[in-house]
Amino acid sequence: MTERPLLLIVDDQLEELRWLTQILQPLYRLALTSDSRQALSRAQALQPALALLDVGMSDLNGFALCQLLKADPQTRNIPVLFLSAHSTAADRIHGLNVGAVDFISKPFHPEEVLARIRVHLRLAEQIRRGSSDEVPEAQDEHPERDPGALLAHSAVSFIREHLGEALTVSQIAQQVGTHEKRLLALFGEHVGQTVSGFLRGERLSTGLRLLTETEMPVQEIAAHVGYGNPGNFATAFRDRHGLSPQAYRQAHRQGRRNES
């Protein structure tokens, strides 16, 4: 059985740590600390799959901690997500500039936190493997022996190959040889998301990758990931990342320049 990913959570509000533990512990292994200075040594020793940092901590703020993590060769590849009530546009841009991959505003919904963690864990794994088209592992250790897992894998592959099309759950189910109700159940069991939620996440994560790794115009990226209207893509992207696609690209470029 695959070991659950380890998350490092850094927040000096004990109530916040308790709340995050409740929603994350069923799915992930957790390393918790309220001491941001201690967090660096924990990250070095434990090599978590992802770090969740508060911004407004008393000893060393989250921005400074993120900079330390990104400056250390041992920890620079750990994806950092900020969870903070400090969520102005300036805060978000600064967070991206110091190396974070995402910024989630407090108060936040548990499903939003879980969805964004899944996205960034998947992206980090794709980067580690050197491939952007990996299919998520089914929960079964031998998916080839489980027809349901095989169907879920096939649906994931079909979605990724047809992101630019106007897909419906019924169409996806038909393409992989099942019906809508069964596909919805299989996705919940083997992928851990709804079909529509996975499709939206894939479109936005692919859009983010194209924004940061290519020079494609935003309008072309929107069409490539299935948004016929660039405005709808911009709205969905802003809802997920707190910035417009163009502002995110500019912030990413500025962060790269600051590193060089």
Rank of each mutant, 00 (worst) to 15 (best):
T206G: 05
E189Y: 10
S154D: 15
E144R: 06
A223H: 12
R200P: 06
F237N: 01
Q175A: 15
G164I: 02
T194N: 09
R238G: 08
L167W: 01
A234S: 12
Q174S: 14
V218Y: 05
A149R: 00
S157I: 07
H241V: 07
L150Q: 02
I172T: 05
G201M: 10
A155C: 09
F158L: 08
F187H: 04
G192T: 02
S205F: 11
T214E: 05
Q171H: 08
L151T: 05
G228S: 12
K181V: 13
G228W: 00
V225D: 03
E213A: 12
Q175P: 13
R182S: 10
F198I: 09
T194P: 13
T178C: 13
Y248M: 15
S196Y: 06
G242T: 10
V191Y: 00
Q171N: 09
E202F: 11
R145F: 13
R145M: 10
I159R: 03
V218W: 02
L183M: 11
S170L: 11
G242M: 04
Q219T: 15
N229T: 07
A247F: 09
Q193L: 14
S157P: 08
R209Q: 14
S170V: 10
M216H: 04
F158Y: 15
Q171W: 07
P147Y: 06
Q219G: 10
L199N: 03
L243A: 11
L204S: 08
S196M: 12
S196H: 08
F233G: 12
L208N: 02
R160Y: 06
L186Q: 00
L186T: 00
V225Q: 01
A173S: 12
L163C: 11
D239C: 06
T235D: 12
L186G: 00
L208W: 07
F187I: 02
A236D: 14
E220F: 03
V195Q: 02
G226A: 07
A155E: 02
F233E: 01
A247K: 04
I172E: 09
E215V: 08
F233Q: 04
R160G: 13
K181T: 13
V176N: 01
K181Q: 14
G188S: 07
E189R: 01
G148P: 07
K181L: 14
G226W: 00
S205V: 08
R145T: 12
Q246V: 13
L211S: 03
L199D: 08
Q171A: 15
T168D: 12
H241C: 13
